[in-house]
Design a protein around this nucleic acid. Structure first.
Lengths: 151, 151
DNA sequence: CACTTTCATGCAATAAAATTGCAAATGGCT
DNA sequence: AGCCATTTGCAATTTTATTGCATGAAAGTG
């Protein structure tokens, strides 16, 4: 993980569709050398995966909501169970257990209110161990990146 | 945006490093047809970008924190200004203005506590228009995907 | 219903890109 | 300086992406 690897990671986090020759030129290496570095970054797991990122609006998911959850019983196993249940929901794109006032936080990608209604119905029914939950809607997105800052 | 396009998007959201021929076989098209569809999905902006997703731990960013922010003055322009400032911080990976109790929510990828300290120092200094803020740490990640559910 | 237009498809040829073997070079370490 | 382990660049090879073109399907029109 030297300077060149870092630069490659930075570039690939921005745009992984660039050709190897192109990247090689930018970091000042030959294509073969560059390719071997990238392959190693994959093998060692630094690069987890390469994915297509969709435009939410054009994919029919305009609405974004954040739900903070307070559980009835807070034990480790209960938190885990709740997260597992939430994770099964396709609309749930992020599910965390957190420190502080609340126990968990969910980030949702929704099509409309009906979908939210149906989802909360499923996750927060009477027998669900959820004491309370607060729903907030994302009004404006100032930043949203998959990039992990390096160095 | 027919069934085949949807399937392609689903596949590409999972793994965009697969070869065109491979994808073509999976959706039951010839490579040329498949390629043209994917290209169109790019051109029309449904596919926003293709990126490498790193393993946070192996990239040296283990800690994840969520900060909810309440501003002093809540006006549109003040919220926008705060988001812009927050967005400039590399450790801030998501920055939203939200409805409800608080005005904004930040998601952070941190190396250590010192980094958090330095960041809060910068964002929430006296003259910053931030009335209060609450920091929560992510204890466990139940789900974290870039995929947008389709259909 | 016949006709036209438009668009997606598959095939085959071509261009571009990735991948490999190998010899040279580089970078620690002692 | 000398040794070992690793990385590099070149050139050949393989794989993959890309394009032109003719066919076929679907949709609209008179």
């Amino acid at each position: 993980m030297d300077k060149i690897d870092s630069k490659l990671l930075r570039l690939l986090q921005e745009d992984a569709s660039r050709t190897n020759a192109d990247l090689a030129a930018e970091v000042g290496l030959s294509p073969s050398s560059c390719l071997r570095r990238i392959r190693r970054l994959h093998q060692t797991g630094v690069i987890d995966r390469v994915v297509a990122v969709l435009n939410p609006a054009k994919a029919g998911r305009t609405m974004k909501a954040i739900i903070t959850v307070e559980l009835e019983r807070h034990g480790e196993q209960f938190v885990r169970r709740f997260l597992d249940t939430a994770a099964k929901e396709p609309a749930v794109v992020q599910a965390y257990s957190v420190s502080g006032e609340t126990d968990a936080l969910l980030m949702l990608r929704l099509k409309d209110m009906d979908e939210l209604d149906a989802l909360t119905e499923r996750l927060f029914r009477e027998e669900s161990n959820v004491a309370r939950y607060y729903t907030a809607f994302v009004i404006r997105t100032g930043k949203e990146t998959t990039e992990i800052p390096l160095g």
